[in-house]
Amino acid sequence: MTWQLLSVAFFGLLAIWFGVTVFRTSSMVRSALSLLGSMAAVGAMFLAMQAEFLGVLQIMMMATEMTIMAIFMVMYMMDPGGLGQMDMTHQKRVSVAAGVTGALAGILLALLPGWGPIVRSVPGPARQTHDLGIELMNRSMIVFETAGVAILVAMIAATSVAIARRR
């Protein structure tokens, strides 16, 4: 249990630190890769919490997503390298207040309630993956299929929005 607490805390701190770095650096590639670091640390937290399939999946998906995010940053930013020292923020005070309030509210909610008994044992990774597959093809099939249709819709929508107008 102690190793679990330590690794969850370590990767949690890492995730927060990388998350803060995303908005502190002025180089766009750096901030995209910091987000990747944050998300990979979240994946490592999943692994520490014995959700092996989800952890590995998270680490895989985010690598591609965030690298592609980096190229879009460079394409669309005024100052991708951060050498021009442009300020690209607004309403700073409101945002800080909102962020701190959100975090504090979440922390209060985490601390106040009694969460009830903690379950110590957890199914093994092979068992979990098997059960997840059965669940997806059985009870949650509609949910899963909805996600598939949503992906298709988003692909078509994104392509049709982004495609150049023919004159």
Binding site: V29, L33, L36, E52, F53, V56, L57, I59, M60, A63, T64, M66, T67, A70, I71, G124, P125, A126, Q128, T129
Partner: peptide, 22 residues
Amino acid sequence: DLATGVLFVNSALAYVMVGLVM
């Protein structure tokens, strides 16, 4: 010996690209 080893191969190889872009 990971129970999700096949998926892990994919996720490790995804970082080749991250390294190259970096």
